[in-house]
Amino acid sequence: MTIPRVLAGLLLLVTQVPAGLAQSPPDAAPCVGGKPGAPIKIEVFSDYQCPACRFFYLETMRSVLSNYADAGKVCVVYHEFPLSMHPHAPAAARYGHAALSLGVRQWSQVTDALFQAQDQWAATGQLEPVVAAALSKEDMDRVRKLVQDPAMNQAIQRDIELGRKMEVNSTPTFFITAKGKTEKVASAVQYPILKRYIDSLLVGQ
């Protein structure tokens, strides 16, 4: 009599697999690369102090931005998702978001700089010199004002809440939407592998 029970338990464990498709994040944040009408949308939830996010941005997403977003094939959206285990991540997120308020070019400059110097500012907490070295004096003056603006914290909080709603538990987590389907990937992947997936989605577009 115990055999059917064991089998039923096994079947239950095996069949309770979450669906492969994730819910698409709502369209609110601007593309940091590409245009909103692009056939593929990649939304990344990222933390500036997370080493995997650093790898994912520098080794993978920069190539996606230059090879696919610039060609109008992909719209890339970055959401702030500072993790509580990283003490300087919220401040870095404020600088990143403030730079995005100025424009995509400024966001790229600041994001490049913050990820490249991650070891340095993560140890000291000295973010401003890193950001200042990446921006023009005028842009830096504007960023300094923006990071003090309470609206910046609210915008980051909205990103965090969106991430929680989308069941983001770790960084980087990204959502790829194409042909009406959204897939969630909760890890940093290498560019050649992501490229193959993007190319497969672009077939017949």
């Binding site: 464990l13 697999v17 669906a19 498709l21 538990n169 897939e183 990937v185 909760a186």
Partner: peptide
């Protein structure tokens, strides 16, 4: 590392539950 199990599709992170299931 919060990787996807990949056992029966993708959107299923490795967790104590997936480890227990695979052990069984």
């Amino acid at each position: 590392i919060e990787a996807q199990c990949g056992c029966f599709g993708t959107s299923e992170p490795i967790s104590p539950r997936t480890l227990a299931r695979d052990s069984l």
